[in-house]
């Protein structure tokens, strides 16, 4: 399973990077969204997909075979952060569009006459 997952993760990253390198602002944002999905799955796979029980100690009885809780905790924070970052990007994108009238990254260069 891990090998299949690894390939899927690679695919997600590939698509994400390809989108992020495009000209359109909205594609870049979608790319970052995909990137965070890829990262979450990567973390999960790194910890191992084995484990037959969710990492919850029910009534103080510890089962030996839990899924690894640490990557899960890391991913949980990452999910919420990536939501905040994505929404920040979205607002940045449409404010830039409103102010500058384009979402084409080729035109949104800042350095040409910058002193």
């Amino acid at each position: 399973m891990e090998i299949v997952m690894s390939v899927a993760i690679g695919l997600l990253f590939m698509a994400a990077v390809y989108l992020m390198l495009s000209k359109s602002l909205i594609r870049i944002i979608i790319g970052t969204g995909l990137l965070s999905h890829g990262a979450h799955l990567l973390l999960l796979t790194m910890g191992g997909l084995g484990g037959t029980a969710p990492p919850v100690v029910a009534d103080g009885v510890t089962v030996s075979d839990y899924a690894d809780p640490l990557p899960q905790a890391l991913i949980l924070t990452a999910i919420v952060i990536s939501f905040a970052v994505t929404s920040f990007f979205l607002v940045l994108a449409y404010r830039a569009y409103q102010e500058l009238g384009t979402d084409n990254m080729e035109l949104l260069r800042g350095t040409e006459d910058y002193e």
Binding site: V80, F83, A84, S87, L90, V91
Partner: peptide
């Protein structure tokens, strides 16, 4: 914080 920030974002937009 989660409620506050999520709602801030959505309400503002």
């Amino acid at each position: 914080v989660v409620v506050g920030v999520t709602m801030t974002i959505i309400q503002t937009i």
